[in-house]
């Protein structure tokens, strides 16, 4: 197996790379482990002291649960299997509190976390309060997996086959260049050329093939894209997913003995 990095978009926390010499089922295993198994922190319990905002308590709690929390996997463990035996301690639970009475949006940043390393990643509007309304609550975040609830998913992975485009005897270069939704072609002086940086953006829509003499083939290489939702960095998501896969294989081997 060979891996080539294609692009790393730091601003949007998005990475894409080319996988060579693997088959589709292996690429899918990576994708499923990322979305279902890599643990992250998310709000699980909310104790509402007062909520006179326009949103119902349940809706407010759901919204809080969905806000990504920066996760430090080294200092947190799952609640099941923790030394405290389910009672809840600083190793398996993260406590947060929120108290807002100023009118306007109630932002995620107004929440005070017990652990300064693990805070809400984005400053999102949770609800909006009018004068004399108030929100006061306490939250508990725990480590969980994406297969139990999507709020624990660390990101989104998807893949496609690597495209290979060959330009033949094209009649109307301008037309082909305009029909491509991703702008992969350049038309200069009636001649069609490939825009090398953008070939990997191709999503194999075949619009150019239907129109003119352009050949679009796919290889057995895969372009894998991973978008992190902010709890963990793309690198952490990938390395954790790989160690989870190895752990599962070790278990399988041990059980077969």
């Amino acid at each position: 197996m060979k891996v080539e990095k294609i692009n790393f978009d730091k601003k949007n926390d998005k990475i894409s790379f080319l996988l060579k010499g693997v088959n589709e089922s292996f690429v899918n295993v990576i994708r499923r482990i990322i979305t279902e198994e890599v643990p992250t922190l998310a709000i699980e319990d909310v104790e509402i002291k007062e909520n006179s905002s326009g949103l119902y308590d349940e809706m407010l709690a759901l919204r809080l649960g969905l806000v990504p929390i920066k996760t430090d996997l080294k200092s947190y463990t799952f609640k099941e299997g923790c030394k405290c035996e389910g009672a809840g301690c600083a190793r398996c639970e993260l406590k947060m509190a929120m108290k807002v009475s100023k009118k306007g949006y109630v932002y995620a940043d107004s929440a005070v976390s017990k652990d300064p390393k693990c805070k809400f990643v984005y400053n999102m509007p949770i609800t909006k309060i009018l004068p004399k309304q108030k929100v006061e609550l306490q939250m508990t975040a725990i480590l969980g997996r994406g297969k139990d609830h999507a709020k624990w998913s660390p990101g989104w992975g998807f893949y496609k086959k690597e495209p290979v485009i060959t330009i033949g005897n094209v009649k109307d270069a301008e037309k082909v260049a305009n029909v491509c939704p991703k702008g992969i072609f350049n038309a200069k002086g009636g001649k069609l050329a490939l825009n090398k940086d953008k070939v990997y953006d191709c999503h194999l829509c075949n619009a150019c093939v239907d129109l003119d003499d352009v050949k679009l083939e796919d290889t057995d290489n895969y372009i894998f894209t991973l978008e992190s939702w902010g709890q963990l960095s793309c690198k952490d998501v990938l390395t954790t997913s790989m160690s989870i896969l190895l752990e599962k294989l070790d278990q399988l081997g041990a059980n077969l003995k």
Binding site: G54, L55, R63, L66, V67, P68, Y105, A108, V121, Y122, N123, M124, P125, I126, T127, K128, A150, S153, W156, E227, W229, G230
Partner: peptide, 20 residues
């Protein structure tokens, strides 16, 4: 009512972009 915290379909966090 209010901007959803995440996209319904893909799960991308979007609410922080709403005011901008």
């Amino acid at each position: 009512m209010l901007i959803p915290i995440r996209c319904f379909t893909c799960g991308k966090p979007i609410a922080h972009m709403w005011e901008d």
